[in-house]
Design a binder for these strands. Structure first.
Lengths: 215, 215
DNA sequence: CAATACAAAACGAACGTACGGTTTGTCTAT
DNA sequence: ATAGACAAACCGTACGTTCGTTTTGTATTG
């Protein structure tokens, strides 16, 4: 072993790049299968087929199916998907602006984070981890960190509202829970219309609550 | 087949009673396994073990596992669990009374309908039906009817609020979706405290929105 | 700059296991 | 006696894993 420290991305050997690309392709296949077939029906064969690799290649990159699922979950819980910061014009009509922003952010979360392959795959993993002890233990801290990261970003954006931090955390958690729950009945109205209407209705009521003084 | 019409429960032969009790026991075992092990890990062996029956008994009462699941789903979607009617004192302070009632009903729904074995089993079936076409087709209409029945009961109780029927339906659907979503992360805080706090926070905001005039 | 040596990558067959379904047998109540 | 209620053994299948082989990229020689 030479001293090619991993902190120096200088010399990414071609093989390492290839291996990393393969792992990425496999993880994408896992997420795709979770969305299409659900956690239970996501078999090695299905992943193999979706990724375009052989059975042996999968076991070469991941020692077990469980490991594949955990790494896929880690990818879904990567904090890379953060809301963009908003710059608020300091001063007048702050409440109205705030409400509009909250509504827009919620709709954006629904369309870009939840109502996607990744969002549905995450739902499958979360529901599976409800009854799978080892899976739950392995993703619990990542999930908590992910929730906190989202909350912090949102609180940073909306901290000037009248609510304290605790209440804000709870409100955004409610929002996340609602959007995730909406994915549990997406199969019953193939047209997005109804769900999107619900999102808007929720966002509107939610924003109204947030931009009002606490009682 | 004699002409013992099912509309005449007059002569329930002892054997029929026994068979019905066995079916009920099996269905309870299914729901229990769905809650404990999840949809994927609910196998015939597990159900057999939980119900205290042999493999043969299960296949005697239900032709297939899918049929068992569908009938279990039908049991979970039975309209028997309806909110009790509330009698409102016609007259003063109706808005405040309304808000209190809404909050109480939501907490009641969470504790008695959603945060239960049956509620979690229903979550498992709904998530499974997202990717299982035959299961979805077989429970779709029952699920829709169940949602409508709940909505109608609630609208009957709260019809005097300022909202129109469409908005009320959407609001209660939002409530149901949120409570179901809360079950998808119940495994991460074994203490009910946090979830119950979220329910209360949601119920409070929800009630405030409902007892306010529309904009 | 070849030629060789070695490790990683990809492959596919084989294995044991657990599942759902089926069949056969036994007992009980009518 | 006859049909239903339950039990137990059996069958084919699909799963996840293991393992030996082949291929490909990289490093080390002359």
């Amino acid at each position: 072993m030479h001293e090619t420290a991993s902190s120096q991305p200088r010399k990414e050997s071609k093989k390492e790049l290839q291996a990393e690309a393969a792992r990425e392709r496999i993880l994408s296949a896992v997420i795709d299968c979770l969305d299409r077939y659900g956690y239970a029906e996501t078999s090695i064969s299905r992943i193999q087929e979706a990724a375009g690799f052989s059975r042996g290649a999968l076991t070469h990159h991941f020692p077990s199916k469980e490991e594949m699922m955990v790494v896929a979950a880690e990818r879904l819980l990567r904090p890379t998907l953060s809301l963009r910061r908003r710059k608020h014009p300091a001063g007048a009509a702050s409440e109205a602006v705030l409400a509009v922003d909250v509504e827009a952010d919620i709709v954006w979360m629904w369309e870009k984070l939840v109502d996607t392959s990744e969002g549905r795959a995450l739902l499958e993993i979360l529901v599976a981890s409800r009854t799978d002890d080892v899976l739950r233990q392995r993703i619990a801290t990542k999930f908590a960190r992910w929730n906190n990261a989202i909350n912090e970003t949102l609180i940073e954006n909306y901290g000037q509202s009248g609510m304290d931090g605790q209440a804000l955390q709870e409100f955004w958690t409610i929002c996340r829970v609602f959007l995730r729950g909406l994915n549990t009945q997406s199969q019953f109205d193939p047209d997005d219309g109804m769900r999107k209407a619900l999102v808007r209705r929720f966002a509107h009521a939610f924003a109204a609550q947030m931009s009002r003084p606490r009682d």
